[in-house]
């Protein structure tokens, strides 16, 4: 559904933010896009959505180059930016105006999702708090029934209840025809939800693996229970898979991937280069 071939992206040719990315993202998955500040997560989302054109290489979204911003492609894609700025109109006007462009928009679903978020505001959209604007746009994005939904820091600004609702709603909405990409720093908010992770570091995708693969190949637990940890932090540690199926601790994995000594072994294990015991 989304293909990146030697993709170099950024805002200036001399200083690309991402270089030579190659990957393929499939439907039925919720991808977590992880990386440090400025690592290029948002740039990648901009490139996939067609906001910016690649500096080199190719991007294909539904077999189309997204920067052409074709009607057919845009109908199947919706992007929720980190800073959701909405116009000074009512929620009803927004839905009436913007659903015009989305033929599969489901107003009932939209209302249902808003109700689950306890969103009952009558204010103009630009007067809403960040969290409420996000709730509103999450509902709009999901109700559009677009096949590809890109979320940039969706849980930033949401209260605890809304984060839970967000996870529930996304889990219900994903199906074999849809693909969600969530870029976030708040990994604990979404780790139960993800089916795959993509970690960006040093302008590259250093890890792309399903959560099942991560759980099979790596073990997460207390330092004492892992004989030879690849990386430990406090009482938590990550080691080679030893047959146990443990809950993935994404925060710990992220830290391990940013540690010079444990980074390469973990990448090798997850990519299958290193055979497990």
């Amino acid at each position: 559904m989304i293909k990146l071939k030697d993709l170099t992206a950024g805002y200036a040719r001399r200083k690309p933010v991402l270089t030579k990315l190659n990957t393929e993202l499939r439907t039925g998955q919720i991808y977590g896009l992880l990386g440090a500040n400025g690592s290029g997560k948002t740039t990648l989302l901009y490139t996939i959505s067609g906001c910016i054109t690649p500096l080199a290489g190719e991007v294909e979204v539904l077999s189309v180059t997204p920067s052409s911003r074709s009607r057919e492609m845009l109908q199947e894609l919706i992007f929720m930016p980190d800073e959701v700025e909405l116009p000074a109109i009512s929620a009803e006007s927004f839905v009436n105006d913007y659903s015009t462009f989305r033929p599969r928009f489901d107003k009932e679903k939209f209302q249902r999702i808003l109700e689950r978020f306890d969103f009952t505001h009558n204010l103009k959209l630009n007067k809403l708090s960040l969290g409420n604007r996000k709730k509103f746009f999450i509902a709009f994005a999901l109700a559009s029934n677009a096949k590809i939904v890109l979320f940039d820091e969706p849980t930033n600004g949401l209260d605890i209840t809304s984060k839970v609702t967000f996870r529930q709603v996304l889990a219900e909405e994903i199906n074999d025809e849809r693909l969600f990409i969530i870029s976030t720093h708040l990994v604990s908010d979404i780790e139960q939800l993800l089916s795959s992770i993509i970690v960006i570091k040093d302008k590259q995708i250093v890890v792309q693996a399903s959560m099942d693969t991560v759980a099979e190949r790596l073990t997460f637990g207390a330092t004492a229970s892992i004989s030879q940890p690849l990386f430990s932090e406090g009482l938590r540690a990550v080691g080679k898979g030893e047959g146990d199926y443990s809950n993935v601790d994404l925060e710990l994995l992220y830290l391990a991937l940013h540690n010079p000594t444990s980074q390469q072994p973990i990448i090798d294990i997850l990519s299958g280069k290193e055979e497990l015991c």
Partner: peptide, 17 residues
């Protein structure tokens, strides 16, 4: 200045260029 973040920008509206 706002297009980057404005979801109501016409840039990504699904209609023809």
């Amino acid at each position: 200045y706002k297009r980057r973040t404005m979801v109501h920008s016409t840039l990504l509206l699904p209609t023809t260029n």
